[in-house]
């Protein structure tokens, strides 16, 4: 068990960016993001036994991570964590100093207004998946994936423009 756990954590380390990005797309504050990040790792670990290695570890991760995010419920919090909010603002100020990162920040801000399926479509697109692969992951046809993705891209473009950013 320990060897399996170490092997799993090692693989996870190599692809941790995937979980980080999914959590960032689906949750708009640091606390919820941390919860979802942790939840994805747990679900990956629970499902790891059934990973046969027929597909790449990263492809398998996309599927489990997105399936977790699609059904994830935010925790109900009684009052906001002030300390956490201050931390968030600090992070944002730092990142906005660099242009590339600020472009991504605009993207992450706009993406929060998409629904769960639209987020999954954009995520898989940005990860370089074809319409066929997106359809396969989400369980929809290739045509449906293409139509949905195009609509979502238009919507996202509008949302980013509304923030005053040229897109």
């Amino acid at each position: 068990m320990e060897i399996l756990e170490k092997e799993f954590l090692h693989k996870l380390e190599l692809h941790k960016g995937i979980i980080h990005k999914v959590a960032k797309m689906y949750m708009d504050n640091a606390e919820d993001r941390a919860d979802l990040f942790q939840e994805i790792i747990l679900q990956l670990w629970k499902a790891y036994g059934s990973f046969k290695g027929e597909s790449q570890f990263s492809s398998w991760m996309y599927r489990v991570a997105l399936n977790t995010a699609l059904i994830y419920f935010k925790k109900e919090r009684k009052k906001p964590d002030k300390h956490r909010i201050e931390q968030d603002l600090d992070v944002k100020d730092e990142t906005q100093t660099e242009d590339t990162e600020s472009q991504l920040e605009y993207f992450y801000e706009a993406v929060q207004q998409l629904n769960a399926v639209e987020k999954a479509l954009i995520f898989l697109f940005l990860e370089g998946q074809s319409h066929k692969e997106i359809g396969k992951n989400l369980g929809i046809t290739e045509v449906n994936a293409r139509v949905k993705l195009n609509r979502t891209k238009d919507k996202l473009q509008q949302l980013i423009k509304q923030q005053g950013y040229e897109f």
């Binding site: 756990e5 380390e13 990005k21 942790q38 747990l42 670990w45 925790k75 590339t100 990860e127 370089g128």
Partner: peptide, 30 residues
């Protein structure tokens, strides 16, 4: 551009736990 920036986004500061037991219990609706 977005796709490229997405790909280049650093993940060095992302922390993966050293063991699974330290994580809290799973809480999906299921």
């Amino acid at each position: 551009d977005l796709q490229q920036q997405w790909k280049d986004e650093p993940s060095d500061n992302v922390q993966i736990p050293s063991e699974i037991d330290v994580l809290k219990k799973a809480i999906t609706p299921i």
